[in-house]
Design a protein around this nucleic acid. Structure first.
Lengths: 236, 236
DNA sequence: TTCCCCCTCGCTATATCTGGGGAGTTGAAA
DNA sequence: TTTCAACTCCCCAGATATAGCGAGGGGGAA
């Protein structure tokens, strides 16, 4: 666990994403892998990342919106445990084109990606990639899996810290009834049904929905429900 | 890390929540703490739990819907990193009444809770509680923090597996245009605005929304967006 | 080649939601 | 004690979404 210790130690003094990048590069070196990537999109749409990919590939990936077809991202979005790239489905025309580009850009052929989820619907990805053959890669992932989980945890913690330092995350809190109302709407009830479920008049329900809309700065009901879900305000 | 190893080993053979409970009891014993609790509410509203609390307290907690005012739950809902109970705000009339009851029920005065988030908005809690004094408890948490994170990770993985056979979600796949449509709606666009953003007629947009509604078995647009978000189909 | 899914467009009516008013009670915090 | 937030109820008009009927072209898979 020496790697983990020194990593956490270095993390302690990090105070900006630039510095975080240095630590990531250092991590890549001690792990003796090709690339290490930490990335997430914050609530304001900014990309917060620390990675060892070339700048060309990074901008290419973003401008082409490759996250939409990248099997790694798609798998991590619906999985809890880490993903070994070689267990994914890489068939499909557009996917193969993407992979060819990725290989040319120096992304390794092997990879191990850990999905990380935080409050307010945060979703981050921590990836280690390499050019090892299958056997060497299996040894690496088996030996390092637990360390990598902890590393991903601590780096995300640091990233959230950096994020909140820059701008204070305002916490929207919904009243119990507002939560009830949005929850029922998210479950597919119409306003009339929701009002009946809560044993209140439809008008009252409307007051809650509008209250929630205001608090969440939402344009309409659907938007309010979406924001509430993304911020983890609803237990659905 | 001997505790972790044996824990993971025992987890391997677990095939039901009852068995999981046995493992949790074993974990409580080797950690030499008062209680160990793992709990989450699945998508069908069932409580999936493995814990060492008395049955009285558990049912009391659920029937009273204490999660709504429990500072531990509230803090974990908006935090990424683990929560030490003693750093929380326990003031407030109803909270103190709740605490008195909890102490009577044998819940320790110390506690360490780890929030766990999975796909589809899953939110679980892993808690270790004790009756140690502050000094002993600090030593415990500092020494065990990393192990506990990994334990919480693996137990959640197992719970997801028990819940649905594997920890991967079966997916409804939306067409690209359907995804676009729902994404814009989730961002607060009206149908007219969304249609304009996509440079298509409002009618066409409507076809996509209805297509998505059918695939997702949703009652209305809000429901469809909520389901799509919960299933990680939208990148918002 | 045929089938099926995806993308695109139109019309009409009805249901539902949104936005503008206003008003009274309760309970907890300052 | 006062204040404030939450909860409850009412009416109305205009905006928006839903539900039903259509149509045709393109591309991949069997």
């Amino acid at each position: 666990m020496a790697i983990l210790e020194s990593f956490i130690d270095k993390l302690g003094s990090v105070e900006s994403f630039d510095r975080l990048n240095d630590v990531i590069v250092g991590l890549r070196d001690v792990l003796e892998t090709e690339h290490v990537i930490y990335h997430w999109v914050n609530s304001t749409g900014e990309h917060c990342a620390a990675l060892t990919y070339s700048e060309e590939w990074t901008t290419r990936y973003l401008t082409q919106d490759y996250a939409r077809l990248d099997p790694v991202v798609q798998a991590c979005l619906r999985q809890f445990n880490p993903v070994d790239w070689k267990r994914l489905d890489w068939s499909g025309r557009s996917v193969r084109a993407f992979v060819d580009e990725a290989v040319d850009a120096g992304v390794g052929n092997q990879g191990y990606s850990i999905p990380i989820r935080g409050p307010s619907g945060q979703f981050a990805l921590f990836t280690v990639s390499s050019r090892d053959d299958d056997a060497a890669w299996s040894r690496f992932t088996e030996a390092r899996a637990r360390e990598l989980i902890l590393i991903s945890h601590f780096i995300n913690q640091k990233a959230l810290e950096l994020e909140r330092g820059s701008d204070t995350l305002k916490v929207v809190s919904l009243s119990p009834r507002e939560t009830d109302a949005l929850t029922l709407l998210a479950l597919g009830h119409s306003r009339a049904q929701a009002a009946e479920s809560l044993s209140i008049s439809e008008h009252t329900l409307r007051v809650y929905i509008e209250g929630a809309r205001m608090k969440l700065a939402a344009m309409n009901t659907t938007h309010a429900v979406a924001r509430a879900l993304n911020q983890g305000l609803l237990i659905v």
